[in-house]
Design a protein around this nucleic acid. Sequence first.
DNA 1: AGATATTCCTGGAGGC
DNA 2: TGCCTCCAGGAATATC
Length: 277
Amino acid sequence: MLRLRHIAAMPELPEVETTVRGLSHVLKGRRIVRIEARRADLRRSFPKDLGQRLTGAKVIGLGRRAKYGLIQTDREDTMIFHLGMSGSWRINHSNLEKHDHLLLETDDGNRLALNDPRRFGSVDLVPTNQLSEWPAFKVMGPEPLDITPEELKRRLAGRTAPIKLLLLDQKIIAGLGNIYVCEALFRAGVHPKRVGGSLSLDRLRRLVPAIHDVLDEAISAGGSTLKDFAAPDGELGYFSKSFSVYDREGQPCSCGGVVKRFVQGGRSTFYCPRCQR
DNA sequence: AGATATTCCTGGAGGC
DNA sequence: TGCCTCCAGGAATATC
């Protein structure tokens, strides 16, 4: 069955990285003069005292851990945001939109809105010196851009689940989502159903660079959209990127074969049966 | 402990 | 055209 769908780029690691770089231009070194939560929660409640803990604080640095963005202040706290599957930061919006849930204003007059129609995102405040103890971070595996084939081999050892699902497990490797797992497996020629613990070091020496490459290329594509970061109604983190297999069911692979789709762990896997073994 | 299923949420697409 | 159902996704939680 051929399915034609509108492709909306999901905020995965490259989109979060692009967002953080864009936010850095308007937030770093600036003081937050106003913050307004326009509802009480996204996936979970906003911190109750968000306003009093952030109003007047100066942003001293921005960062990323896996798919979480980090906004570090000169006070005790770092704000941690997750974009879920539909979140974005809008800059200097001319009008408030229905799903602008959190508003920030800086001392130099830039206005930011966290927009998230499906509300799968989150916002938390955590003391900076306790970030590594924050529950999600505490159990997280290494960054995909840092991991070595040897370390991935250790982390997959003994695991019988398919490699596709293990690469989505943030405890093993933290920051990959469905799109880039499909793309990396394709690029490395690895079949998504392969038992994770059975992958040889040689195969992981192809897979890890493939992971690095698909992420680096997407980050570069995103970076090229950041030229005018403070333009009115700028929306950070979304850019067009073409994929080799993701969302291409029934379409030709570059090898001449046809891209297939099946469901693993309740979500779509796209792959080329000729290229991936 | 590991594997698997379910839940959250909205908007867009397709069926009738 | 309009109503209905399905589907996309990450992470927390539940169940075996």
